[in-house]
Design a binder for these strands. Sequence first.
DNA 1: AGTGATACTGAGATTCGTTCTCAACCAGTG
DNA 2: CACTGGTTGAGAACGAATCTCAGTATCACT
Lengths: 159, 159
Amino acid sequence: MTDLADLRLTPQRMAVLEVLRAADDHPTAAEVYERVRRTSPRIGSATVYRTLSLLVSTGRALELNLGDGAAARYDANTCRHDHAVCDGCGRAVDLDHPVPDGMMAEIARRSGFAITGYDLQFRGMCPDCQANSSDPARAAGGTGPTVNTHAKGALHAEA
Amino acid sequence: MTDLADLRLTPQRMAVLEVLRAADDHPTAAEVYERVRRTSPRIGSATVYRTLSLLVSTGRALELNLGDGAAARYDANTCRHDHAVCDGCGRAVDLDHPVPDGMMAEIARRSGFAITGYDLQFRGMCPDCQANSSDPARAAGGTGPTVNTHAKGALHAEA
DNA sequence: AGTGATACTGAGATTCGTTCTCAACCAGTG
DNA sequence: CACTGGTTGAGAACGAATCTCAGTATCACT
Ligand SMILES: [Zn+2]
Ligand SMILES: [Zn+2]
Ligand SMILES: [Zn+2]
Ligand SMILES: [Zn+2]
């Protein structure tokens, strides 16, 4: 990967990068901020946001938009990978799955696009939340996330 | 609170649904609001947001989170389909392509998740923006024309 | 008609994530 | 030492989306 030579390695940036590298989950910027403050209490949130986008734009981190409209998440695992997102607890686990190369070529051919990449997330229930599906209490460590209402109804006109 | 079995087809909801059905792009809530106001000037944005999520939760529209951190987009085409998003102009075109069923089963098996669905967006340059790529107005994304996974540019002092 | 129950609306306030502004703060260079 | 340019941090500002709540519309039953 790109080396850090072209970056000014300030203590704040170092702290952010270390927090991100130590994270096994996929923390949001706010979570990174919170963790960085434990070792660098004087850091400002603007610096964390700035550093995260710097890391992303230089290929040292990935920004994940898991599609639920929530905050962006950051991933120090820069190898191309996709995620499975739990509708219950919001956890996102890494997927190391084979991507059919022919599929992207086919899409490019049929759409006329010059495809440069793709984002793919699976959604479902993680094993923990499947076990606790009848229990309204949160799974271990779960940050009360997305209440997914899949109720169906019918619009009926009376006029 | 609201029992979805008791839904009324009010003029406001009618107007939102018609705007969405008439849209060939994938408008954001703000764009839907703007268009609805042309025929229903008294409508409030809260009603538009409420109606859109109502349409989504009752299966009459899809909410798209195209992953660039921008606003959600809405789609009256409720058939399962994916999108190709242009890094140049932001346009999102529908893709009608088959995703191998075996892939989802494999993901489910390996992750332990109970997979209920997936979100997939391709990114790249649409034909129009490819033609105008000689114009150095803006080339925010990677300029690589071939299949390249999330090419990251060198760090440039971001404005 | 009237009455009450319930759903819906719209204006504004509020929340949340993120970016911007700007004075102060280093780190180099001469 | 002063100069210069990148960096920081506090708070303001921003855009998207939701919430609050009083007022309105529509229903069921008389
Ligand atoms: Zn879960
Ligand atoms: Zn990951
Ligand atoms: Zn384009
Ligand atoms: Zn579509």
